[in-house]
Design a protein around this nucleic acid. Structure first.
Length: 664
DNA sequence: GACTAACGTTTTTTT
DNA sequence: AACGTTAGTC
């Protein structure tokens, strides 16, 4: 606490009433917030009255741990530190019956959600309709968040799909991510006893990454805050990069409108980056208009200049970075963990990964294909969900015939039709004598056998005497699921990876079960987990490959930002939609991740879907102030290096060039 | 009902 | 280039 600067100290001591902390990148935000909460407890505040909302589950876990280290683990355990979505799950699991849902509602997400939408597109728009599920989902999502009824969506097709989607998941007693917030807010607004219960529970509320909250989340906060108004929000409007998800910078820009007379504290001293990096970042972000003007004051004067390199192609870009990283690493003094490569889209990671593998550089990919979106993982989770709740149609339909067990497409269609007609779950239809009698002998027997098999495990789970992980493990091996997945794999490598995924899920379940968690709690946590579960990937060593979005909140000594080209950053879509400001903030976030060195690069030619496309440098490159920028090109660097190292050996430089060519 | 071959589509960012 | 979907065949 003694090492806090003046502004941080002020923040830590402003415990009551509305407080807004404007914390620029690298200004010790997390430390300030954790100190503030620890101080709160020190001052006699009951830990169970503390609510801290973070942007990701990972951030929540970290914050909890840090506060625990400062006060006591026991006190930290009593606090509620979680995301908005987790908070709403807690509220809903307790009180959702007020809204007509059953308490064991399931959460639909990711691939399952997309799959459902795909079906509805065909049902409502015909099989030749070419609208993308993602687009439909995002339209439905923004309508929901804006409080527009599905019936009132302008586009008639999307409206029809929206209505069907809403009714479908409602009938399945399921909710999606938006519903979590929507229903949570509804519950708190319409039922005063529920609202009072939660208001009484929380005496002090903190919201981190406030620039990324949306209008609905703002309303949720207002419901939870009582007349004492002990609300503290922390954020930086310059780092608002989730506008596409409905985030309202207005929450931060017009905070006074929601909570009058707030104390506003600015953290402006940057402890992370060199002056060179900060100056470059500042020169970029000042091109945005309508921001809460704030200075970022360097505490580390000077520093290495920012490197800006033009590359011939994306292949060379990746290879160059990998080589340079290796050279710096081998020189000594640097760990692989010190390096990070940041990119705009996940698709850009492939070339980088290849280059890393080639030079045997260990790396960790954050995000990309989310663990929970992998097919085998979703399948196993579907089985687990089914064991917990047979009424959930989505998981049932997902695994009904995988592995194949003689229940084919046509049988499934009949079952779904029957369940819709009878207004019951698919599971009920499968058990319905009336339905079974309309089938041929073979599918009927297959269904009976499957129900019987599953029922045995459901009973074992429900007695609760065994570890659920062990039960599921046995089940998965009985149905030969691993073998089934292996048959679909092309390489032994892939088979290995998929087995690992299956076993990871089961191991996680076993662990959760040991801790006394129910299947329901386990499933909730899986649905809401961002990309990795607390411990597994976190331990992985190596350089970091990450999207700029996912890099928010992280820092690295040596940062590379690749693909600074028009169409990639700013992304072509943001240019069309007129949201280039947000792309600029995104780059600003990327730049401010760097502590010591920063290297920016762009390509002249990029391989897209197999063929080459020529690129123009990003408009943002012209916006940077060049005082601390060193501009070079791949050709310059490679040219000098070859002649340096291999002296005037004509043939070896020739060979190097030829090898270079034959690669691409 | 299961397997294979050809086809067409893909790439924004995530709780 | 790679993946998922679809149509056609056994």
């Amino acid at each position: 606490m003694s090492s806090l600067n003046k502004a941080q100290f002020e923040a830590v001591n402003a415990l009551d009433g509305p407080v807004m902390i404007l914390a620029g990148a690298g200004t010790g935000k997390t430390r300030t917030v954790t100190c503030r909460i620890a101080h709160l407890i020190d001052q006699g505040c009951d830990p169970s009255g503390v609510l801290a909302v973070t942007f990701t589950n990972k951030a929540a876990a970290e914050m909890k741990e840090r506060i625990g280290d400062m006060i006591s683990q026991k006190a930290a355990k009593e606090m509620m530190v979680c995301t908005f979505h987790s908070l709403c799950v807690r509220i809903l699991r307790q009180n959702i019956e007020e809204l007509g849902y059953k308490k064991n509602f399931s959460i639909i997400m990711g691939g399952d959600q997309t799959g459902l939408i795909k079906q509805l597109i065909v049902r409502k728009g015909g099989s030749k309709e070419k609208i993308m599920p993602g687009e439909v989902l995002s339209k439905i999502s923004s309508a929901k968040n804006a409080g527009i009824a599905m019936e009132d969506i302008e586009d008639s097709l999307i409206s029809a799909i929206g209505v069907a989607y809403r009714d479908e998941i409602r009938a399945q007693n399921a909710v999606d991510f938006d519903d979590l917030l929507l229903l949570g807010e509804k519950l708190l607004t319409n039922f005063s006893h529920v609202r009072r219960q939660w208001q009484e529970r929380f005496s002090h509320i903190t919201v981190d990454e406030f620039q990324d909250t949306n209008a609905l989340q703002m309303r949720l906060i207002q419901r939870l805050v009582d007349e004492k108004r002990n609300i503290c929000v922390v954020g930086d409007d310059d780092q608002s990069i989730y506008g596409w998800r409905g985030a309202e910078v207005a929450n931060i820009l017009e905070f006074e409108r929601f909570f009058s007379n707030p104390r506003i504290i600015r953290l402006e001293e940057n402890y992370r980056s060199s002056e060179a990096i900060l100056h470059t970042a500042n020169s970029l972000i000042k091109h945005n208009i309508g921001r809460r003007e704030k200075a970022l004051i360097p505490t580390k004067a000077g520093g290495e200049p920012v490197k800006l390199i033009s590359m011939p192609g994306d292949e060379e870009e990746a290879q160059f970075i990998a080589q340079e990283m290796k050279a710096i690493h081998d020189r000594g003094g640097k760990k692989w963990e010190d390096f990070a490569i940041l990119f705009r889209t996940n698709g850009q990671s492939r070339k980088l990964e290849e280059a890393m593998r080639e030079l045997k550089i260990p790396y960790r990919m954050v995000g990309a294909q989310s663990f929970y979106d992998r097919r085998e993982v979703r399948d196993v989770l579907a089985y687990i969900e089914l064991l917990a709740n047979q009424e959930a149609d989505v998981p049932l339909l997902r695994i009904l015939n995988s592995p194949p067990r003689g229940i084919g497409q046509s049988t499934i269609v009949q079952a779904v039709d029957h369940s819709r007609e009878m207004q019951q779950s698919v599971w009920e239809s499968l058990n319905d004598e009336g339905f079974r009698s309309q089938l041929g002998a073979r599918p009927r027997n297959a269904i009976i056998a499957f129900n019987h098999q599953l029922q045995g495990y459901i009973d074992r789970i429900q007695t609760g005497s065994e570890n659920a992980g062990h039960v599921v493990k046995e089940f998965i091996s009985e149905i030969d699921y691993v073998d089934f997945i292996h048959r679909g794999c092309k390489t032994p490598d892939e088979a290995e990876k998929r087995s690992e995924g299956i076993h990871d899920v089961i191991a996680q379940l076993a662990k959760a079960s040991d801790k006394g968690k129910t299947l329901r709690v386990f499933l909730d946590e899986s649905s809401l987990a961002s990309d990795r579960d607390d411990d597994d990937i976190e331990k992985k060593q190596g350089a970091t490959l990450i999207t700029m979005h996912a890099s928010k909140g992280l820092e690295f000594p040596n940062v590379y930002i690749v693909g600074l080209e028009q169409g990639i950053l700013p992304h072509s879509r943001s240019v069309e939609e007129g949201t280039v400001d947000e792309e600029r903030r995104l780059l600003y976030v990327g730049v401010t991740r760097a502590q010591i060195t920063l290297t920016l690069s762009y390509c002249s030619i990029r391989t897209k879907w197999g063929d080459k496309v020529s690129c123009t440098p990003s408009q943002f490159l012209q916006e940077f102030d060049v005082t601390f920028i060193d501009e070079t090109s791949y050709e310059d660097i490679m040219g000098t290096e070859i002649s340096d190292e291999e002296a005037a050996d004509f043939f070896s430089s020739m060979r190097a060039m030829l090898l270079e060519d034959s690669d691409s």
